[in-house]
Design a protein around this nucleic acid. Structure first.
Lengths: 219, 219
DNA sequence: CGACGCTTTGACAAACTTCAATCCCCGTGG
DNA sequence: CCACGGGGATTGAAGTTTGTCAAAGCGTCG
């Protein structure tokens, strides 16, 4: 097999990850429940388990000694998380709301799926992580507060693909993801509303009124 | 092979990557020269080549439409870069100074190394990328200007492991890596010098006077 | 020596944070 | 059913950090 073929296959599989992982992981492992804000795993813990969101939303965080917090990402239904190639969690993971999580021993999955399928699965997951992280890098390094918030809403809406988008997280989580404070996030949201770009039905639900304007503001 | 074993092996191989890749890549591909600031590959280009620094330093960058720039990372001698699992470069790469780069067709390396070795090589490279990116995330999202600069100098010194560290990049590159401006970088450097934490012999060479203070400032 | 590019410094402006007060939504209990 | 209470969200005012603009310094290379 050539590298081109293998890359194509990796790319193809990315689109299928949900289906592929659910096929393979189906019926394996344990289904666990986590209450809101409960820790699923901690930073620097050994990572011999693989997780997949069944329902709810998960966040991964890294905390500095003085309490400053950076959220690495949010994980929604059917998404895998906690796949750590180095066997050690680089972030901790917590339930954003009450969650049901499928937990599978990596070794068990490996045994059942075989080298190839297991490799592709973890490979695709790692890849998506890297993609996320690199987009996040540009956002944190070079975007203004308004652009960060616009990017965030846009990203959420494309991931959810519904008319009215529900925000699963509170302002503090948004702020810690975007490298801002809750107050700044709040101000930017009101600003976006005043500009008739988005409209909030409540603090946890919004609708995009002018998508092209939002895209422009997100850069 | 169990997952635990494969993770152990992946971890073990990370430490050996230089040697492993040089063994496998030795004598393969083409050695190319790039002048300072010359582009090695562009963002969104197809990625069917793998690169390794022979001499010089490389930076990867992403640019916004209005010219704002974020540097993803710097690559030194013997480090691989440009390994893109999705077959498309997420950043562009440029020579920071005159560089000699080993360029290998991914398909050729795959054919010679075999599935296993090739997979481990790209796997390790992707892993290191992810590690870098996630540390970078915390830096950009939650650290102050002073902490960013301190972290940067510390990172550089540990990677180089010499008494006097040479900065291969100018202030603009540091700034674009740290999400700051050159003026702020410059001010933080003066501040670190005034505090007797580091000492600059010239603009491109420094020495750490008080490492524990630097560590503390980097958080 | 002089010109050019990069760095440093200063003064000021803008962006973002902090602190504090108020508001709003929602659930609870009278 | 309505008053009450609490947590999160919003808003305002003031403060801090960082960015911008401009000038001066420094080093290097013709």
């Amino acid at each position: 097999m050539t590298q081109t073929q293998s890359l194509d296959e990796a790319t193809r599989l990315r689109g299928e990850t949900k289906a592929a992982s659910s096929d393979i992981m189906m019926g394996m492992g344990v289904r666990m429940s986590f209450a809101k804000d409960e820790e699923i795993y901690g930073q620097d813990e050994d990572a011999d388990l693989i997780y997949r969101v069944i329902s709810g939303v998960v966040r991964t965080t890294r905390i500095m000694s003085d309490g400053r917090r950076q959220i690495g990402g949010f994980y929604y239904s059917d998404e895998m998380f906690g796949v750590e190639p180095d066997g050690r969690h680089r972030f901790s993971a917590e339930a954003l709301c009450d969650c049901s999580i499928l937990v599978v021993k990596a070794s068990a999955l490996h045994a059942v799926a075989g080298d190839g399928a297991f490799g592709r699965l973890t490979w695709a997951a790692t890849n998506r992580e890297l993609d996320r992280a690199q987009d996040h890098l540009l956002l944190l390094g070079r975007k203004t507060a308004a652009e960060r918030v616009a990017s965030f809403l846009l990203d959420l809406s494309t991931r959810r693909a519904t008319e009215a988008v529900t925000l699963p997280m509170g302002r503090q989580d948004m702020a810690d993801y975007l490298g801002l404070t809750i107050e700044t996030v709040s101000r930017m949201l009101t600003q976006l509303q005043s500009a008739m770009v988005v409209e909030f039905a409540s603090t946890r639900s919004f609708r995009i009124c002018n998508r092209s304007a939002l895209v422009r503001m997100a850069q």
